[in-house]
Simulated scan of single mutants.
Amino acid sequence: MSEELPPVGKTAVGVAGLRALESGRPDRLFEDPYAGAFFHAGRAIFDGKERDSRLGMVFAQQVAIRTRFFDDFVSGGTQTVLLAAGLDARAFRLDWPDGARVFEVDLPDVLAFKEAVLAEQGARPKCERTAVPVDLRDNWSAALKNAGFDPGQPTVWLAEGLLIYLSRDEAERLLTAVTELSAPGSRISFEHRPDGERDGLLDHARNVGGEVTSLWLGGLAGDAPEWLAEHGWRPETVTVAELAVQYGREPLDSTRGGFVTATR
């Protein structure tokens, strides 16, 4: 089953493995009871690929902090869209308000893999969950609206681990579509690296090597807050180092990056 995942989808298996590691810590920043099942179902992808395994450990703390931060960001949303939802199980593991709707947008093969594993686990969502199988480089906004998304309602948008796999043009098209679908009061968040391609964490990862780094196209580089401000959003940023201190972890010294959040 894992062999059918597209290259970008395969990275989601590695991230699930890192979430499983964090979930097993006594001082864990979050608990994901399904992460281990996702990784076990897809781990054949990494058999014999030592570089990919080492690459994963480069991002272990980044993923732990990112997951906790984004968990807190989407908490309480009544209409939430997870762009490139991957193998995270927020619809199943977070507490959602009554009537909350979560739309998970990702490639058909990724969502099919995810559904199969969740079914084996007998997982039940804690909100109204809708999977939207579509390539985000295609007309995903039409597919989202056809699935029941209400553009007149404020939306929480999350693009976790996504933009780096898009070219600048693709990232701008994606965020332009998000903006057009966002009623006043909508919020969005994704990774922000002010140093762009020169980010220390990314350089470390490239030195380790592996299939994942060859897929990186850069997204908005270091210009995300400026782009959002120019398109009617009010952006704020926070660094991984700042969050590490807040969460009781050793701060990463290899990056000035973190996350951008913005309100429409």
Results as ranks from 00 to 15, higher is better:
173 R>G: 05
137 R>V: 12
146 N>F: 00
169 D>L: 06
141 S>M: 05
155 T>Y: 09
142 A>N: 13
139 N>D: 15
179 T>N: 04
177 A>V: 02
129 R>F: 02
158 L>A: 10
165 Y>Q: 06
158 L>D: 03
136 L>Y: 02
176 T>F: 01
145 K>S: 10
179 T>A: 12
179 T>L: 04
177 A>Q: 12
162 L>M: 07
161 G>D: 10
166 L>G: 05
181 L>N: 06
154 P>Q: 09
144 L>G: 11
138 D>W: 02
139 N>K: 09
137 R>W: 05
175 L>T: 04
169 D>Q: 12
178 V>S: 01
158 L>Y: 04
150 D>I: 04
164 I>V: 15
141 S>F: 01
129 R>T: 02
178 V>I: 14
178 V>P: 01
154 P>D: 10
160 E>Q: 11
133 P>M: 09
145 K>F: 00
146 N>M: 06
130 T>L: 00
151 P>Y: 05
173 R>A: 14
172 E>H: 04
151 P>A: 10
157 W>A: 01
168 R>A: 13
145 K>M: 14
145 K>C: 14
163 L>A: 13
158 L>P: 05
152 G>N: 13
134 V>G: 08
137 R>H: 09
169 D>N: 10
131 A>C: 09
139 N>H: 11
144 L>A: 12
139 N>I: 00
146 N>D: 15
145 K>P: 00
163 L>M: 15
168 R>W: 02
165 Y>N: 08
132 V>F: 13
130 T>Y: 00
173 R>Q: 13
151 P>N: 08
147 A>H: 08
159 A>G: 14
160 E>A: 12
143 A>C: 00
165 Y>M: 05
130 T>A: 07
169 D>G: 10
136 L>R: 03
139 N>E: 15
136 L>K: 02
172 E>W: 02
177 A>S: 14
179 T>Q: 02
164 I>M: 14
178 V>Y: 02
160 E>Y: 06
153 Q>L: 11
148 G>C: 08
144 L>Q: 12
149 F>V: 09
164 I>L: 14
165 Y>F: 14
137 R>S: 11
131 A>G: 02
142 A>R: 15
142 A>S: 15
133 P>R: 07
169 D>A: 14
181 L>C: 07
180 E>Y: 04
166 L>T: 02
146 N>Y: 00
178 V>C: 04
141 S>P: 13
132 V>R: 14
140 W>S: 03
144 L>Y: 10
155 T>L: 11
165 Y>A: 04
154 P>F: 09
129 R>E: 08
165 Y>C: 06
171 A>E: 03
140 W>R: 03
153 Q>M: 12
147 A>L: 07
154 P>E: 08
135 D>N: 15
162 L>D: 01
148 G>K: 07
145 K>I: 13
171 A>C: 11
140 W>L: 01
144 L>C: 12
168 R>E: 15
175 L>D: 02
163 L>D: 12
172 E>R: 07
142 A>K: 14
174 L>A: 03
170 E>H: 02
152 G>D: 15
136 L>I: 14
178 V>K: 02
150 D>N: 15
181 L>Y: 03
171 A>K: 03
154 P>I: 06
142 A>F: 05
134 V>D: 07
175 L>M: 11
